[in-house]
Design a protein around this nucleic acid. Structure first.
Lengths: 270, 270
DNA sequence: ACTCTACTATTGGTCCTACCATTATCCGGC
DNA sequence: GCCGGATAATGGTAGGACCAATAGTAGAGT
């Protein structure tokens, strides 16, 4: 009963996009709220006075954007949903992957974000959250000491820790960016976790950082983070080159052309 | 001759996604390079042993992801292209829009990014780039003093300045994030520019910041940036200037993985 | 020999119709 | 009252036909 005549017939030539845009607009203007469903494909076909294929293509585009979710069967159809960060992450991940962006560049960005997040978390999170963070980091350390560490699980814990910390800023933007980054270069990240030294030092560093956060010691916490990224730089093997060669932190060797980084072959493992 | 038998017949039920995934994988593994074109839809239809509608929907999804570009006519088809930041931006913008992210939260994030960018730019950009930045900021100030300032042009200049500064970090990630942010919430940003005081102070602040950057004075430059965001907070209208008030420390606030749709009536205010 | 035009082949865009698979709902038998 | 099958609604697929745009080419005209 929701949609009487929201939609107008589509023009020719690019009808599919036209349909998609109209529906997207309706969703963004909240004429259709999350949880509600669009009319069935055959009904839309009638409203737009077009073929069903056009509607289906529009639906596919909207689904890809994360605006709708499609369910089969009776009472199925296209349900408007809240866009998930995962959509942004996927988009970012695709981009990073295709650009062959070096780990060094991402790490530098992450370090800057991590520092801000830590500072804000110390300022805004309550002591319970901070204590919880400490507990989780200790759990990570325990898992590490087991005989056969599960890389997947460890990576997952690391990811969750980062997101937990980001949540403590009380600013959702930081949380989303962190999630996007986590998903964005997890593939490269896993390789690092293969290094037992990196694994161990990372876990220890997490505990250290969490303790400093819990103790409301911003400078010490930032120092720990700096140590972590310095260590990452050392452990990063041939993977995407030396950070300094790609983006030197020292102001002595500047004026590098960005296009000249990452000359190593793409690891076509398998 | 390009694609012999890269693709295998798709399974039933979700054939469209299957096809899209296979093609996406082929692109990401660089079995098809940017600039090259995929086989025609009818050819793919044969290779995948499926209907043409399935292929078309897959194409639509890939196009939406920004992986391919579709041209009509003879020698048309799906051409693999480099993903543009615009895709990430659009995704992010959609997300921010639907989540009703407050300007305060975005501003806080931007401030942290801006500070890092400024620091890195001072360290890595050469003097020519810095001088160029100063020149551009002065140009912005000039445009502002004209009788009838064009909001669109001013916003554009501000955007370009931000991106120019981000480029000076020599780390493309910062550039992309800045572009994504610029495109992502430009709609909200324009409103601020309506305020003549904000306009003027922003321009003056830009010149100031650029001068400090050119003079290699990181602390003064950061101070300018802080002043800018403090001013933004004052000028921001009802948009709740303080991040902490916009997002109370309770995790009760509207989350993104929302399952609890608000039940308010669907009055479509127009 | 050059240029412009019209034709043609290729390819995406649309429409249609039929049928299959899945799922919520309803109805009848137990 | 409960359970299971029939039913209907809906997305998913198949295949064919035609339209529209476009690049290449053959041919007419100069």
């Amino acid at each position: 009963m929701s949609t009487e005549y929201l939609f107008t017939p589509a023009r020719v030539g690019r009808a599919g996009e036209d349909v998609a845009l109209q529906i997207e607009a309706a969703i963004l203007e909240e004429k259709i709220l999350p949880g509600e469903s669009l009319p069935s494909e055959r009904e839309l076909q009638a409203q737009f006075q077009t073929g069903r294929g056009v509607i289906r293509e529009a639906m596919r585009a909207l689904k890809q954007k994360g605006l709708i979710e499609i369910r089969k069967g009776a009472k199925g159809g296209a349900y408007v949903k809240q866009i998930d960060v995962a959509n942004v992450s996927e988009s970012l991940a695709l981009f990073l992957k295709q650009q062959h962006v070096s780990l060094a560049h991402i790490a530098e960005f992450r370090e800057s974000i991590d520092r801000t997040i830590t500072t804000l978390a110390i300022a805004r999170a309550d002591s319970a959250e901070k204590q919880q963070l400490v507990t989780e980091t200790k759990k990570l350390l325990e898992c590490l000491d087991r005989p056969e560490p599960d890389m997947g699980a460890l990576g997952e814990m690391d990811r969750e820790l980062n997101i937990r910390l980001a949540k403590m800023t009380k600013n959702p933007v930081f949380e989303w960016i962190m999630q996007a980054l986590q998903l964005g270069f997890s593939s490269q990240d896993y390789a690092l976790y293969e290094d037992p030294e990196y694994r161990h030092k990372t876990a220890v560093n997490w505990v250290e950082t969490a303790n400093h956060i819990a103790a409301n010691e911003p400078l010490r916490a930032l120092s720990s983070i700096g140590a972590h990224y310095a260590m990452l730089q050392r452990c990063a093997p041939e993977a995407s080159g030396d950070p300094r060669s790609a983006s030197p932190p020292t102001d002595k060797q500047r004026s590098y052309n960005i296009e000249t980084f990452d000359e190593n072959d793409e690891e076509s493992r398998s």
